[in-house]
Write a protein that binds this DNA or RNA. Structure first.
Lengths: 194, 194
DNA sequence: TTGGCAAACTAACACTATTAGTTTTAAAAT
DNA sequence: ATTTTAAAACTAATAGTGTTAGTTTGCCAA
């Protein structure tokens, strides 16, 4: 009963499909095997363990996210690029909830492998901020600030922490948040140039 | 073998102790029972299920967090209050990693009970921002912005997403993030007042 | 002293991941 | 064409989650 033509890649794609469909960041091996028409332990002929599969999905998610961001900011600079980036970031996170949740649950502080995979994700923001003529050090700082705003917003919206006054005008809040970032950055730039 | 004097409260405290010690947001019923000197199913004489226990711990965590924030901002206003709040928020989250992780993993969008428990947590920020003379609507927006920055920062630091250039100067980044919020807010206030 | 009830227990089930050992089958080697 | 071999499926079993059902224990109050 060998060889149904199953490959690691087909397993990965099935897992991704589930995550994209359900919005959950994980899939059990049982459910995954069921969808592939095999028994659970047979998966171990193709993958080492769940952690490895998670890494594969993680890599896929990162690549998709990065490609999305690059497409969204291509040809744009400064504030326009920041706004487009923020828009793309939010759209991706809400439209690919499962993948985004996975991205934001995998790398733990001491997992060098996951951190390395995530590097391209950091570079997208750094690229954008390099238009402003900030020092290397300041780019590192402001990259964190922008990332904090975007993730903090999405994460808490997802958790239900932004329900105050109903779910009042989340898009207006997002707009204000980005404008806040830009105003803060402009204030910093004025100080530095002077 | 009835009556070891075990109560729901003692179970809660043991669970909290574990979470505070380990930094993990959860404890297995097996481990919890082991620490209490009973067998796992005996826990069900005191709690309905894990979810209920989570709620209890959640309530405890919220109360502790809120008390901490109120103490830190007492007597302070405007920028001073914001800075003190941000400081306290960060300290709590890093020194009570397990409880903070729990707070930021429990309420899912459709869990009204958890959302209700979390209300005091939202009010602390709203109190602070009400010093600025913003409209109700703007307070709701800016409260989200501040919360987004704080949580986004801590969450990603915890996940290892801020390791860029080593773990360069995280405290400087935090300072810049808060200053960014204040500058953004001041810009908004100038616009409004005209 | 004797019920009765709260609170412990044991035994079992369902669902997770995982390992060991076995069989099947497709493709490569004779 | 047949044999061999190795990948890829399988079954059976273990350990760790939470949980339920049914049983025993022991304290306290009638």
């Amino acid at each position: 009963m060998a060889a149904k033509g199953l490959t690691k890649d087909k397993i990965l794609m099935q897992a991704v499909a589930y995550i994209e469909d359900t919005g959950q960041p994980t899939i059990s091996l049982h459910e995954l095997a069921r969808r592939l028409g095999i028994k659970t332990p047979s998966l171990y002929n193709h993958i080492a363990n769940t952690k490895e599969l998670q890494y594969e999905i993680f890599r896929y998610a990162i690549e998709k996210f990065v490609a999305n961001q690059q497409a969204a900011t291509k040809g744009k600079t400064k504030d326009d690029a920041v706004k487009a980036f923020a828009e793309a970031y939010y759209s991706f996170a809400t439209q690919n909830k499962g993948l985004y949740r996975l991205i934001m649950s995998i790398p733990s502080e001491h997992d060098e492998r996951a951190k390395e995979m995530a590097v391209p994700l950091l570079n997208t923001v750094i690229d954008i901020l390099s238009d402003y003529g900030l020092s290397e050090e300041n780019i590192a700082h402001w990259q964190r600030v922008l990332r904090a705003i975007l993730h903090g917003f999405i994460s808490q919206e997802d958790l239900g922490y932004f329900y105050y006054y109903g779910s009042m005008d989340l898009s207006k809040s997002r707009e204000i948040a980005i404008q806040c970032f830009l105003d803060g950055l402009h204030t910093e730039l004025k100080k530095t140039i002077h």
